[in-house]
Amino acid sequence: MYSQGLTDAKGQQEPAELLAAFQAKIDREEKIEPRDWMPDAYRKTLIRQMSQHAHSEIVGQLPEGNWITRAPTLNRKMILLAKVQDEAGHGLYIYSATETLGVTRDQLTDELLSGKAKYSSIFNYPTPSWADMGAIGWLVDGAAIMNQVPLCRASYGPYARSMVRICKEESFHQRQGYEIMTVLARGSKAQKDMAQRALNRTWWPALMMFGPSDKDSTHSAQSMKWKIKRFSNDELRQKFIDATVPQAEHLGLTIPDPELKLNPETGHYDHGPIDWDEFIQVLKGNGPCNKERLQARIDAHDKGAWVREAANVYQQKQQKREVA
C-alpha cells in the first residue's frame, strides 16, 4: 500500500500540516479511508482496537458453541447456531476492515494464537448451564451493543461500515438471550435457579467488558479525539446498568450486587465496587478458561492447515492446467 510511505513508522516527525489537515477532517466528521494519509499512531491504534474486537468475536464463538449440540429444542438449536455463526461472520468483517490498514489475516491470526493479542475477557468464563446462553445474549451482547452502536460513527470508514452491518445483524442476539431468560424465569423452580445462577456468574464480568474505569484507562483521550471512541468506559457502563436493572426486575431475578440502588439525585443506579484485580488477572491469562479457549482456536487452526494448503495447491494446479 503506497500511502504507507508517507506515514512514519520510524519515529520521525510527521508533517504538522498533514496532521492538522487530518484532525480537521475528523472534526468535520468526514471519514478516513484506507489509502488516505493517516498518522502512524492512528493506524496502530486502529489495528489494535479492531483486531481485539475481531478476536473477541472469534473466541466469543466458543462459550456459546459449547451448547449448540445440547440446545433443548430444534428452534433454540437453530437460533444459537445462527448466532454463533454471526459471530464468526462479524470477526470476518472486522478482520477484513483491519486488513485495509496494511496487516494480513495471517498476521492477525498469529497474534491471537501466540497469545500476544488481547480479546474481551468475558469469553474466558465458563458456560456450565443452558441459562448461560440466555445470560450471554442478554448481558454480554447487550454490553457489546452499547459499545458498538457509537462505533458505527467511527472516523475510519471501513470500521464504521463493518459496525453498521454488525449492529444490524446483532439486533436479534440480545433479544433471543433475554427471551431464553424469560422462559427460564417463568419456568420450573430448577429453571429459575438456573437463570439466577447464570446471572450471578455473568453480571460482574459483563460490567468489566466496558474496560477499566476512566481514571485508569490509558488510550481513551486520544481515541476520543480521533473519534474511534465516542463515549468513556464509565459512561457506557452506567448506561448499561441503567438499562439492565429494570429488565432483571421484570424477570424477578436478583442482580448480585447488594449495593445496587437508584440514586434519586442523579437518576442513575449506584453500584458496588468492581473487582479490577480479577479483570487484570483474566486479561493476563489467568481466567478460568483462557487456556482452553486459546487452545480450541489453536487446534482449529492447526487441524485446518492441510485444508488451506490443499485449497491453494489445487488452485495453482488448475491455473497451470489452464495455461498448458
Binding site: 445462527a82 454471526d86 470476518l92 468483517y93 477484513s96 476492515a97 486488513e99 485449497a311 488452485q315 488448475q318
Partner: peptide
C-alpha cells in the same frame, strides 16, 4: 460490501454467498 479470503474464484463466490447474504 467487504472482502474475504479464498483460494480460487469459485470458492470466493460460494463463500461470499454464505458470509455476506445470510
Amino acid at each position: 460490501v467487504g472482502s474475504l479470503h479464498a483460494s480460487d474464484a469459485q470458492m470466493a463466490l460460494l463463500n461470499a454467498r454464505d458470509v455476506y447474504t445470510r
